[in-house]
């Protein structure tokens, strides 16, 4: 997506004209050109980046501030010290370590199964003959557009009836069916050259071997994209865990943060709440920073096509 075509006119700056054209243009380092580049290029970029980062920076700085530094008219930007007191309070007021473990289990187990199911279903849809294959694909496409929010009440009644309230499987199970991953991987599998599979078939490789020895190895980037997007959304998932858990032992991080919010409702609690927010936000921020290319591609591409 970042790949620029050779000539890429920028509406805000003088065009970089190809050599055969004769548009009069400024010398590269003329004052006018520099000002235009800075005003048209850097200032908006800097502004946009700051608007994103300042609130997050404020969160981190505030998480180290003691109540006295927050309840004051004389606001200081930097905390007096890097005192981890707020983190200690946050983690003893509510069982944050438990939330962290729960979130990790839900994310790892949920994502692994979802990606696996997506690979299997996409392979079946593309490479295995079946009478109603297209109809099934359309059902998956439509499921992609059914928002999980309208399903919460019926799913709550079903899962609570099965005894899944306040259990990790109760959190994981309803989200396991994956339309998004299936869709994305199907689109990718369709682009694979048929010849490599043909030769494998002639060599006598069955579906299972073709899937794991050919299709999966050559599709690692797409699978990684699906996996990352799944991990991010499982980690942030809120409405369902909020409804299906009401005991701290099985809450995930976002739900636990709500619990912390309820118990720290006065102004002196802001530092503690910011410490809690850091614990929820920073892990995903780190994953995003490391693998943003795949995540951005997956999230935008996934929605572009469905």
């Amino acid at each position: 997506m970042t790949s620029l075509s050779p000539v890429n006119p920028d509406p805000t700056a003088p065009p970089v004209a190809p050599s055969e054209t004769f548009i009069p243009r400024d010398r590269p380092f003329s004052a006018r050109n520099l000002i235009q580049t800075i005003a048209g290029g850097y200032v908006p970029l800097l502004l946009a980046t700051l608007v994103v980062f300042l609130p997050l920076l404020w969160m981190i700085l505030s998480s180290f501030k003691l109540p006295g530094e927050i309840i004051t008219m004389d606001l200081k930007i930097l905390p007096a010290s890097l005192n981890p007191e707020n983190y200690n309070i946050a983690m003893t007021t509510v069982p944050f370590a438990q939330f962290f473990i729960n979130s990790t289990i839900v994310t790892v187990v949920g994502s692994t199964i979802k990606v696996l199911l997506a690979i299997l279903t996409a392979y079946a849809l593309v490479f295995v003959r079946f009478p109603f294959r297209n109809a099934i694909f359309i059902l998956i496409l439509v499921a992609l557009m059914v928002p999980p929010q309208v399903s919460i009440l019926p799913n709550y009644i079903l899962i609570a009836g099965l005894g899944g309230k306040n259990t990790l499987w109760g959190i994981i199970l309803p989200g396991l069916g994956t339309a998004f991953g299936t869709f994305l991987l199907r689109q990718h599998f369709l682009t694979l050259p048929a010849s490599i599979l043909e030769s494998a078939e002639i060599d006598g490789a069955g579906h299972w071997r073709r899937l794991w020895q050919i299709v999966v190895p050559v599709s690692i980037p797409s699978i990684a994209t699906v996996a990352l997007v799944t991990v991010v959304s499982e980690w942030n998932e809120y409405i369902w865990p909020l409804i299906i858990t009401d005991r701290p032992e099985t809450m995930t991080l976002p739900v636990g943060l709500t619990l912390l919010q309820n118990s720290e409702s006065n102004a002196s609690g802001w530092g503690i709440l910011m410490a809690g927010a850091v614990l929820v936000i920073v892990p995903i921020l780190v994953v995003f920073a490391a693998l943003q290319r795949y995540i951005v591609a997956g999230l935008t591409q996934g929605s572009v096509t469905g």
């Binding site: 991010v232 929820v280 936000i281 995903i284 999230l299």
Partner: peptide, 9 residues
């Protein structure tokens, strides 16, 4: 990609 709960707080 950030948690709406964290961002909201």
């Amino acid at each position: 990609v950030l948690s709406g709960v964290g961002v909201g707080l």
